[in-house]
């Protein structure tokens, strides 16, 4: 069994006028610092399973504005499992995270009135991949991968949406860090923008994509 831990302090996140967050980067928007911490648990002696929990907290508003003391709290859970089931290698990864930002008023772009919403976002994914690593021939270079993702942004915000995505891919590893990927992805996007903000709540946009990618990991 092993434990791992990480702690970091950074300039952190910055609140944008629509309620979304972005990295403040080198040019900070306030004097506050964001604290990030993660603890990981590897219960098996071969380190094949890791379960992690993380938190990030900090003030995100611009200095000298009404949102100066607004806090964002982010919580996350993650999982990584890698198991050899002869002749395959199975890898399962997943993550679920929640973002909560304090209450404030925003400007409606339609009529310039003020409005507010519960700034609560959730996102998560789970993916699995299978690779016949113990085959001697070129078959061992193939990898089948499936990924399901969900992204739900705040109801009645200008960026409110509920996305579900499913991707299925077949990879071929040319070397340990060079891969050709063929992926099919289907995304269902359901709007959560209120009519007051010019949206059509519940309207669904479906998209299907195919990707052919070549990647070298440096």
């Amino acid at each position: 069994m092993k434990w791992s831990y990480d702690v970091a302090i950074s300039n952190g996140l910055k609140l944008l006028p629509d309620g979304t967050l972005e990295n403040a980067g080198i040019t900070d928007n306030n004097k506050n610092k964001t604290i990030t911490a993660r603890i990981g648990w590897l219960p098996l002696s071969n380190s094949s399973l890791e379960i992690g929990a993380s938190i990030m907290t900090g003030k995100v508003g611009d200095a000298g504005t009404a949102t100066e003391n607004l806090t964002a709290n982010l919580y996350g859970l993650d999982l990584n499992l890698i198991e050899n089931i002869k002749p395959f290698q199975l890898n399962i990864k997943g993550q679920y995270s929640v973002t909560d930002v304090g209450h404030t008023e925003f400007i409606n772009p339609v009529d310039s009135s003020s409005y507010s919403f519960t700034n609560h976002t959730t996102t998560g994914y789970i993916m699995g991949s299978l690779r016949p690593t113990l085959y001697k021939s070129f078959i061992k270079n193939f990898e089948l991968a499936v990924r399901y993702g969900n992204y739900t942004t705040p109801l009645n915000s200008i960026w409110g949406t509920k996305d579900n995505s499913l991707a299925v891919g077949l990879n071929y590893w040319l070397s340990w860090r060079t891969v050709i990927r063929y992926t099919y992805e289907a995304i269902n996007e359901s709007s959560r923008v209120s009519t007051d903000l010019g949206g059509t709540p519940g309207s669904v946009t479906k998209s299907n994509s195919m990707y052919l990618q070549f990647s070298i990991q440096l």
Binding site: Y5, V7, A37, I39, T57, N69, G102
Partner: peptide
């Protein structure tokens, strides 16, 4: 809000120190 943040941050620091 300030108090809550202070409590959260203090808890993180204490938990991390004890864990470490």
């Amino acid at each position: 809000i300030l108090n809550r943040n202070l409590i959260i941050m203090s808890a993180i620091v204490v938990i991390t120190t004890v864990s470490a």
